[in-house]
Design a protein around this nucleic acid. Sequence first.
DNA 1: CACCTTTTGAGAGTTACTCTCAATTCATGC
DNA 2: GCATGAATTGAGAGTAACTCTCAAAAGGTG
Lengths: 234, 234
Amino acid sequence: MSDNDAMTAARTSTPQPLADPLSGAASPGAGMGLRERKKLKTRIAIRDATYRLIRERGYEATTVEQIAEAAEVSPSTVFRYFPTKEDIVLTDEYDPLLEEDLRARPADEPIVESLRHVLRRAVGLGFTEEPEISRLRTKLMVEVPAVRSRMLESMSVTGHMLCRVIADRTGRDADDLEVRTFSMGLIGALTETAAYWAEHDHQDDLGDLVDRTLGMLSAGFAGPEVASPSGGRL
Amino acid sequence: MSDNDAMTAARTSTPQPLADPLSGAASPGAGMGLRERKKLKTRIAIRDATYRLIRERGYEATTVEQIAEAAEVSPSTVFRYFPTKEDIVLTDEYDPLLEEDLRARPADEPIVESLRHVLRRAVGLGFTEEPEISRLRTKLMVEVPAVRSRMLESMSVTGHMLCRVIADRTGRDADDLEVRTFSMGLIGALTETAAYWAEHDHQDDLGDLVDRTLGMLSAGFAGPEVASPSGGRL
DNA sequence: CACCTTTTGAGAGTTACTCTCAATTCATGC
DNA sequence: GCATGAATTGAGAGTAACTCTCAAAAGGTG
């Protein structure tokens, strides 16, 4: 979860070959047939049009019809590519990358530590490639109820990914209560980190915030007290 | 969060005096004027009608119009009482009770420990008072995307409550990054516990599951390993 | 270039939700 | 009791996000 990453791609009708998760990137899907390339272009066109319109007139004021018109497709097509309006904003294809990075870390490293490294990179990546998008997304996630709601779906998808990784590492079942709650606890904390970042107008460095969050978690939920003014433990 | 408790009551137009959070309970709002009493009765009628219809024909197949008819009010009135259809299902008034219980615990007790005690009681309470409701709710939360989505709103409200309690205990600010992520981490894990419970057909004892979750959390996120087949740490 | 499959657009329909306004219902002072 | 004012309700019209169906268009293949 670079920030609100993760996605509901799972619910998207066509689970795109994802190839290149970043819209603005160079060659949109080189190699595959014309059909595939066109689909990718349409997808990107819809996403870009959406972000542009939302920036111009706000989320609620932007209708799917307008998005369709701006992207030069029919409204039906928009819904074929994204099951809901919120998904146009929230969907991305970072999860597989994240999973890959995570699995590349040494298996005996504590998962929180692995996450720290992986997210550090993801955050940096998101910034160089799509500097505006992360900000707009987190902002919408904080300000627009409908988007925030849909976030849980994203969290859930990323959470399941985490469960699988942890399960493979530890030999436990991915459906273990402990594995699941641990994962969702992490995702919840990280999502809140993104929300905090947005609420404070993106003034802090997201990487630092993530570090602090993970540091707090490994210092321990109710374990040794975290430095606090009153010395009280959490 | 007895299970998916917590609520979006905050977004409800009229923040009811909540008096008696349980619909089936004895005297619906004794003491207050006729107006207030009628409002409470309407609220309960809508909620009960909704649960009945959903049980009979499922969530999606139940329209707000049908709910209105069954509750003998107009559709407009339904929306006046509950901002969204999902809220009819998710809204409850447990949060204030939870907060009260939480504040009644000794301030030097680790918060996870306090939660264990408080939730133990809440779970028991939810069972004796509304045995069916908790099950239906968690089931819907797992099965109906729209309801699950709305959950994040609930989680957020409960999370803020937790933040305030922790802030008061520790002298920190309720908006501290650490306080917030810690809280949402907890809520995320607990919500997942409820989901787990529902997905396994409510066969386990929810209180036990909550105990396991909290035990895992205080044993430590990446701290000493949790007993696991391979001995790997989380 | 013909054949088959996939993708698209057009259009009609459903439903959750919003807004406005007039009618009703409760609360209050006399 | 009853008149006056405030809160609550219902009716109705309107919007916008979806869903479904079907025919047209475009891509892939022999």
